[in-house]
Design a protein around this nucleic acid. Structure first.
Length: 777
DNA sequence: ATAGGGTTAG
């Protein structure tokens, strides 16, 4: 019936031209000759006679099919040419044009066709509604939905998914209950609404409330667990689902890959009945995320087909390990760059100190989004040019990048990553001006920024101001306290959270357990660990186990820690072994430490930090031949020790220091001050822990080397340049060295200052001769 | 036979 809606043809402007029916067929034939493969052409020649006869309905269908094909090939000009040449059209013809333009990201052209269309049918409205949603204009979509003369289940499903994609879960639920007819896509729509917005408990409750879901819904739920890094539950879904399609396999492979279980991922990759770009890309990014760059590259080179995501994953891998040249090489070779590719490269240059290259890419890229702006702003901030960073921030507004909540959030998270407190504070000011302060999203970003910049009190002030705190707000604050070594505050806040009736998730519990570990609350920690599954349905992941092993290990219960590790339902990862290693070192169990270190080696042969740690372990017991072996092994595997550096922000400028650095203009003053401090420290009883130096050198020489570590230089510089009474905030890219840690404790007492050091793992608040980490990290 | 709504990777 619908095919016969020929009304539209009457008002078609080209009817006036009186094209003969044969001329349309000629047109089709030409198109076929130019663009279609041989078998199709043969067929059309065979049928040529029939097509010559009339301008029939079947001719129109043939044209429609041809238009669809053009559109699928991205040839929307050819599609338009054919469309224009048609004397008669059906509404399907028009709808095909609209939908084709939309799938080619030509929203404006689609809208033009929709507006010009003489008689719209249900499909036209539905297509346009989803077009608006895709174009991030939910308001306009809703307007069309309200305007349309009649709605069917597709219209309702489209608007439901629109609400879901824009975070309006409650609205989506209302739509779901309001709609007159529901099909399985509607059910999947409401399920996806929960999943996409991180409300997994509701999703799983919904899922269990009803039997028989289509495979898409199983995939949706599994993907939700993947996004939340709840791999155990994801695997459980995978094992339970009655039918599996390609997406199911791909999702499960991603789960393993992201959880660092590359062998399991590989096994599933081999077992999977079908492999597509997603499958291959999941493997590439899995290897990348686990630092196995060579393996990633091998898979990447073998891929039968690559898209932008595959290229970007590989490039990001090179960026991660600072292989700037390889990253650039791929970026220049890739045929299908998108915004993300440009953004990755900009970040790459910015993080490697080449802001001018970053800027030149930024200026050259065809389109910018808020990530691009955050990357370039962060680049300037990170390289000590806060003025230019702020100027670009203003520029962003002028460029039309909407200063919405998400761009604030973006830039704030950049500030957090690079710990650029001054810039963060300036942006905080602008957030207040824009009236976004009390909102949850921006509030959480501000909160995280202050936590990561070492301002735990300011973070709490922001936390208090957030009107409707969500799970993320609580998690950020609890984990912030825990990472700063304020275990007591973290636990208090957790109790407040329970009183407020907010259900904790796995992330919350990581904060809680590590707080227990830092405050030495062994029984409390054990009780929380045991109860979290029963009370909240949270299945312990490797991070929870790592906290527990840390907790037991710290208390010297190495046997219990080992037993817990054996009882884990999955293989221990490097972080878990790392906790055991730390405990072994603390309690002088060299044999166990060595075993742990070797396990970490096996799991992460590229982990340079581990070589150094193990070298130190050998060195501390005078096993110099083993130290030498380590050095050889490092050279053979091509692992490069990441150079340690520390930085500190003074009056809007970031000052960076590396080991034995003498390039800073105030170098002489800094060294003189350190000499002076050294004398006073020794007077107080400080003895440098020379046993930790990697090399077998004379005692005096060792002491000399230790004194020049980057964190000490940064601290000394900061004391000299930051007015008394204000805290000193130093950031280090690696873990703080043990000797420096001891020294900074003394220094904090001698100069009477609060010194906050953020290292790659946690925060240390030094004051009055002690540190909040309790000398264990 | 041709047009519309739901799931996966950076």
């Amino acid at each position: 019936m619908r095919f016969r809606q020929l009304q539209s043809a009457i008002s078609c402007p080209f009817r006036a031209r009186k094209l003969s029916s044969s001329s349309i067929n000629v047109q089709i034939k030409q198109c076929n000759n130019r663009n279609l493969s041989k078998p199709v052409r043969k067929k059309s020649i065979k049928k040529q006679k029939a097509e010559h006869r009339v301008n029939s309905d079947s001719d129109i269908v043939k044209c429609n099919i041809a238009i669809t094909k053009y559109m699928r090939n991205g040839q929307f000009d050819a599609a338009l040419q054919l469309f224009n040449s048609m004397a008669r059209k059906t509404s399907v013809t028009w709808n095909t044009m609209i939908s084709g333009y939309l799938s080619n990201d030509q929203f404006e052209l689609a809208k033009k066709v929709f507006d010009k269309m003489p008689q719209r049918d249900l499909v036209s409205w539905n297509v346009m509604i989803s077009g608006y949603i895709k174009n991030k204009n939910l308001g306009a979509a809703k307007m069309l939905f309200d305007q349309m003369p009649e709605r069917d289940v597709v219209s309702w499903n489209a608007i439901l998914s629109g609400y879901a994609q824009n975070g309006y879960v409650d609205e989506a639920r209302r739509i779901f209950y309001e709609m007159p007819v529901r099909n399985e896509i509607s059910w999947n729509g409401i399920l996806a609404a929960y999943v996409q917005n991180g409300r997994l408990e509701e999703a799983s409750r919904l899922f269990e409330s009803k039997g028989s879901w289509p495979v898409v819904s199983w995939n949706c739920l599994m993907g939700g667990y993947l996004k939340k890094r709840r791999y155990v539950e994801a695997r459980c879904v995978f094992n339970t689902m009655p039918v599996r399609d390609k997406v199911s396999w791909n999702t499960m492979i991603s789960c393993y890959a992201q959880n660092g279980e590359m062998q399991a991922a590989r096994k599933l990759f081999d077992e999977s009945p079908v492999r597509d770009v997603f499958t291959w890309t999941a493997m590439v990014s899995g290897y990348v995320q686990n630092g196995m760059l060579d393996e990633a590259r091998r898979v990447f080179d073998k891929m039968p087909e690559k898209n932008a995501v595959s290229w970007n994953a590989m490039i990001a891998g090179y960026v991660q390990c600072k292989r700037v040249d390889l990253a650039r090489e791929l970026f220049e070779a890739m045929p299908c760059r998108n915004i993300s590719s440009w953004n990755t490269m900009i970040t790459c240059y910015a993080q490697n100190g080449d802001v001018s290259r970053a800027r030149s890419l930024f200026d050259r890229m065809p389109h910018r989004d808020c990530i691009s702006w955050a990357a370039i702003i962060g680049g300037y901030a990170q390289n000590g040019d806060s003025e230019e960073a702020l100027r670009m921030f203003v520029e962003m507004k002028r460029d039309g990048e909407r200063m919405n909540r998400s761009s604030f959030t973006c830039v704030l998270s950049t500030c957090a990553d690079i710990a650029s407190l001054e810039l963060g504070k300036q942006i905080h000011g602008r957030v207040v001006k824009a009236g976004f302060e009390s909102g949850c999203y921006v509030g959480n970003a501000l909160l995280a920024m202050y936590c990561k910049c070492g301002c735990i009190e300011e973070a709490y002030d922001v936390f208090k101001e957030i009107e409707e705190k969500d799970l993320i707000s609580w998690n950020t604050m609890i984990n912030g306290y825990a990472r700063h070594g304020f275990g007591f505050e973290a636990l208090q806040l957790f109790e407040a959270m329970e009183r407020a009736g907010i259900r904790p998730d796995d992330v919350t519990m990581v904060g809680v357990l590590s707080a227990c570990s830092h405050t030495g609350l062994i029984d409390t920690g054990t009780a929380y660990f045991d109860s979290m599954t029963q009370d909240y349905g949270i299945i312990a992941n490797s991070k929870h186990y790592t906290c527990m092993i840390d907790l037991l290990g710290r208390a010297g219960r190495l046997d219990d820690a080992q037993k817990l590790m054996k009882d884990m339902p999955f293989e221990a990862d490097a972080a878990t072994w790392g906790a055991l290693l730390g405990a072994s070192r603390m309690h002088g169990n060299a044999a166990l430490g060595e075993k742990a270190a070797e396990m970490i080696f096996a799991l992460e042969p590229w982990n340079a930090g581990m070589y150094v740690l193990l070298s130190n372990l050998y060195a501390s017991s005078g096993r110099w031949p083993d130290v030498g072996k380590m050095r050889l092994k490092m050279r053979d595997t091509g692992v490069k020790k990441v150079p340690g550096y520390s930085w500190v922000e003074v009056q809007n400028k970031i000052h960076t220091f590396s080991v034995g650095d003498s390039t800073h203009p105030e170098s002489h003053r800094i060294y003189a001050f350190l000499e002076e401090l050294d004398l006073r420290m020794k007077h107080e009883g400080y003895v440098s822990s020379t046993k930790l130096v990697l090399h077998d050198v004379e005692e005096e020489e060792k002491e000399h080397m230790l004194r020049y570590h980057s964190e000490k230089l940064a601290v000394a510089f900061a004391i000299l340049n930051i007015p008394t009474g204000r805290p000193i905030r130093v950031i280090k890219n690696l873990r703080v060295c043990e000797d420096c840690h001891t020294a900074i404790k003394y220094i904090s007492k001698i100069v009477g200052r609060l010194i906050i050091v953020r290292d790659s793992n946690r925060f240390h608040h030094f004051g009055g001769g002690v540190c909040t980490c309790g000398d264990y990290w």
